[in-house]
Amino acid sequence: MERKYSEFLVLFFILLGVIGLMWLLNGSTFMSLNNFRSMAFQLPELGILSMAMMIAMLTSGINLSIIATANLAGIIMALILTQTIPPEATGPGGIGLVILAILAGLLVAAAIGLLNGFLIAHLEISPILATLGTMILVSGLALAITKGYVVSGFPPAMRAIGNSTILGLPVPILIFAAGAVILSVILQRTSLGARIYMLGSNPLACFYSGVNNPRVLMSTYLISGLYSGVAAIVMISRFNSAKADYGESYLLLTVLVSVLGGVSAAGGFGRVSGLILGLIILQIISNGLNLMGVNTFLTVALWGMVLIAVMVLQFLLNRYKEKRRSI
């Protein structure tokens, strides 16, 4: 209990510090309502993808195929939206067609998740290699289907998902919040969640205490795939288009957000609340650097350094705690 609170508080103070620093550096351009609105539209995509990464990392795995999955799911949705039935025939703003497209996209994402799960759980391939293979295959399929072109021009109902607000809150933020609540409930309140943490801390002990390890891994990668699919909905509706290589730079960031939020790369530790704070911290720094006109490549290099710095800090903290315990 103590550990959870202290970590959350540390992150919270870092967040306050980061906001203060960016305010100081950028003044009123940073603290404007407009700026916060634009951040609120950018953040959900990365947030949902980070959750897809997080759940794999909790089982001490990794999912390199999340972005490829999101792109393929997005392309399937986009093709159904643009190439089949005239949208007017399916209700106001083409709402029926949008629902059909989203279901099809989620189905594809779930299927990729299950493929990953099967390779990792039943064939016992290391998660890095299994998801590397599916990543190449899935991004190849996305490229082959679209021939590298952009698929664009969605009915109004689809565009509304990415660009409108409900009660002043952007719809993507609401989708992200719903996803975060659902994942949090799965992890903290269900037996599946407990098993995921246990599997991540010690797979052998988990197995001997009667847990069906392969089944837990299947569920983990299924959820990871589904969250990639949800990210695809937000992504394509915001851009009003789908393409085989959107968001390729997100891979580093999803790992960074997870690690920043306290997810242990060795598995077994990390909560959704931490991930959300990590995500906001990263978004604010990135936005502030952007406002200052910092070179994007320098920002990328900076993220790499932050990732290593956070991991080193985690390592040192753990060692310090262990030392104290042994005394």
Binding site: I62, A265, L307
Partner: peptide, 14 residues
Amino acid sequence: IITTIATLNIYYGL
């Protein structure tokens, strides 16, 4: 994998 994802971006970015 995490170390080299980070250093890939550091080396290439710089």
